[in-house]
Design a binder for these strands. Structure first.
Lengths: 326, 326
DNA sequence: GGAGGTCCTGTAACCGGTTTCATCACTCGG
DNA sequence: CCGAGTGATGAAACCGGTTACAGGACCTCC
């Protein structure tokens, strides 16, 4: 069995209070006593129990982060940015993936009991659950999800880049645009669509349920038999990549005949030469960590809703550039 | 302040022991008493403190996982597989990324104090640290890293697939092979090289320090001025993708003039049509979680060193197939 | 009617730390 | 020489649970 603070106290001939003071340097201890305690602690290989400490301090020194998945680069990067800052702030990070889990809400509540605060990415838990957490006094920051009540949030700006993207297409002579995605499923997608509409009023909307490659590849068929538009503005990269593959297989000239854009700038987008919009993923995570720290330390009481800028990335699927693969 | 077990006991007119029994269903309680306790708990919105519980049970019900990064899909998938199984086993998951951290060893030791056991991916911490952890009685499982002492490990098989990959190239008529990577930096790479050598004795070795795209793109230059081999067998996909981009830019016929293979099957490899070797990443994580659980529960005392099979994935950079993008 | 058993519940010790407060020794100024 | 102040230390309460053990109520069977 591992040594406890009482073992060290006995060995050094002092009280446990003194050992505690030496271990955490919290109060003056006579040098001679301090050395004796240090020696005893070393001899017994004493390492203070985090559980005991946490119970006494009534804090976990840990934060949670909830995400749907780590498969794509998106959430992985956010998690990394979050972990980096949390570590700097001296907090451990607990993770919870809701993929393939039907009890996500319960799992999140259980997790909230194990940390001082948590970050929730995307639509992993219901609004009701978020509100319940907040009502229970949990410290919560939402990322990539519209604000719920007075809960903090951090999001990537969508509308400005959507406008820039659309203007870029118009500048290239594209007139008939088709937006692929369903604005009603996600406020993010709605914002992107709204941005596109602001610049190109006559943009068509092609509803699609799943925003993945299969759906993208599938829906191309409809257009091949009918007329192709000048450009497909996809709600995300997966969709765009799926369409791209299918269009290329059909021998359609890209970007000559039709232009394609995505959103997110996943790694594969680089290899596919896909024009897209890059989000500051790591920065989203880092910002969330800082906001959460403010909540936990109580240094801020007013809710904050941050919006981080995004960046248009132009590649071969819109302009036939000679830019290197980078 | 949140209600504690004592508040509930007072409210229900019973002792804290009875409340505990009701909350955890650990012993028979008279139905009438149980209902009274339940009602009191509900009224006070009592949720047992995990800290108190953990201290009493002397367990964290949490496992750690240490990884270098999450940027590539490799570690992200391993972490996901791990998290899924850990959650099924009722354990939370703590993460620690060592990227850009110079005190990785200390951080890992600190983390070990906060969980019942941990998984270490790759060469994130020194062998000495792993041994120190094991000596302190920590439960440790290594993944994608050669065994250290009697510590459990889970690895992906390398040699068999390396042989299959090489045979595939020979079957296609390739004779002059160049292996790109440094077998001395990683036992994994050494295994892969050894497997290649077993089938093609005259394979050349091209040492390269960093196994990333830049390095790959860079080293192509040397070969363009001299003679190209029949095939480049790269130690990983990033390297291969870097070379591929540079070769294509130079107008080299792939796979006609030169074939290129990678290792890992990252997502971008699919889009690039790169022949590679797929590792069962999620399964690596899941297996590690199960081994760790055996260690923690004490149901196994003999160390285990598992090796999971890998799979050759043939794509356009070796054979000019018509296989769909999948 | 009493011994023995079962069922339920409370008392109290325990997990391993932190921290308040009291105490005691010692220094210093008057 | 004495009272006040200062610095180091220990006793004990506390954080919020779990659980071994004891004991009382009640039932059963001889």
């Amino acid at each position: 069995m591992r040594a406890t603070i009482r073992d060290v106290a006995r060995e050094a001939g002092v009280s446990i209070a003194t050992v505690s003071r030496v271990m955490r340097d919290s109060a003056a201890v006579r040098p001679a006593t301090r050395d004796r305690v240090r020696a005893a602690a070393d001899a017994l290989e004493f390492v203070p129990s985090q559980l005991g400490r946490q119970l006494a301090e009534r804090r976990h020194a840990a934060n949670g982060i909830v995400f749907p998945d780590l498969s794509g680069p998106y959430y992985a990067e956010v998690v990394l940015g979050y972990e980096t800052v949390a570590a700097e702030l001296g907090r451990s990070v607990l993770i919870l993936s809701t993929r393939g889990r039907d009890d996500a809400d319960d799992a999140v509540h259980a997790m909230a009991e194990r940390c001082d605060g948590l970050v929730i990415l995307g639509r992993t838990v219901s609004d009701a659950s978020v509100e319940r957490l907040a009502a229970r006094g949990a410290n919560v920051v939402l990322v990539a999800r519209p604000p719920v009540g007075g809960v903090d949030s951090v999001n990537a700006e969508s509308r400005t880049s959507a406008r820039a993207l659309t203007q870029h297409l118009l500048d290239l002579g594209a007139r008939r645009l088709v937006f692929v995605g369903d604005p009603s499923t996600s406020p993010d997608v709605a914002e992107r669509f709204a941005g596109v509409q602001e610049v190109s009023q006559e943009v068509e909307l092609h509803h699609v349920d799943d925003l993945d490659e299969t759906a993208g590849a599938h829906l191309v068929g409809d257009y091949l038999t009918r007329a192709l538009p000048d450009a497909f503005v996809c709600a995300n990269d997966e969709l765009a990549l799926g369409m791209l593959g299918r269009l290329q297989a059909a021998g359609v000239d890209i970007p000559g005949r039709v232009k394609v854009t995505g959103w997110d700038d996943v790694m594969a987008a680089r290899y596919a030469g896909l024009t897209t919009v890059r989000q500051p993923m790591r920065e989203l995570g880092a910002t969330a960590a800082r906001l959460l720290d403010e909540l936990i330390s109580g240094s801020r009481t007013q809710p904050r809703h941050d919006e981080l800028p995004t960046e248009l990335v132009i590649r071969r699927t819109t302009t036939l550039g000679k830019e290197p693969l980078s």
